[in-house]
Amino acid sequence: MSSSMKITLKVWRQAEKNARGRLMTYSVPDVSPDMSFLEMLDMVNNTLVRKGEDAIAFDHDCREGICGTCSLYINGRAHGPLKGVATCQLHMRSFSDGDTIVVEPWRASPFPVIKDLVVDRSSFDRIMQAGGYVSVRTGGVPDANAIPIPKAVADEAFDAAACIGCGACVAACKNSSAMLFVSAKVSQLALLPQGNAERRQRAERMVAQMDAEGFGSCSNTYACEAECPKEISVSNIARLNREFIRAKVL
């Protein structure tokens, strides 16, 4: 079995939205390299609770990198050090014995802190609500094979559709821009014939809602793409810009 490591954690603790937060230090002995990062936090929490202290609140669910619930800014990077990997898939073997690890929540004003490392990302749902769909009703749609879609197009749409809505792109961006997230949905639907009818309103409305939620604008630094666990491409942002201009001028 692999040897155990000793880790020092500095974790952002904040009792509630309007409370003042601060970094608290915890020393964690007996960390196995095979543990996931979140399992390490589980272990810390169980120890804290047994000692009568409050557990560290953090969001997570699937622990398979697909639900988009986990977040965490780890040593200054959204979802930690690995490329294309969400926090829940990060394992302690990516760290070394004696490391100090700083863990903070997503920092962006449209994502207010709920407690400790948990933030409120409901602004993303409101952006989706502003046209992130195709207006079809249940029933009365054509046969699935009625419209052939070239494989390359379907694959490109899929690449955009793979976004898990985690918000790392926003957290990584110095302007707290949500362009990568918005552009992923706009691209998916703009690429497919099904999304064509509403593409103008969609681009306009989703961008307007993004602005209304207080997300900043994109200044093309591409920190978002670098930190996105699903490696959503910034070429989607270019497509969103084209869709947006097209909506405005045509």
Binding site: V136, G139, V141, P142, A144, P148, Q188, L192, Q194
Partner: peptide, 22 residues
């Protein structure tokens, strides 16, 4: 069968063959 039709109409990017069919 209707489920597949419904999902395709919503823009679900199912895997396709080179001819463009599912």
């Amino acid at each position: 069968g209707s489920i597949i039709d419904q999902c395709v109409a919503q823009g679900v990017p199912f895997a396709r063959e080179y001819g463009g069919l599912l």
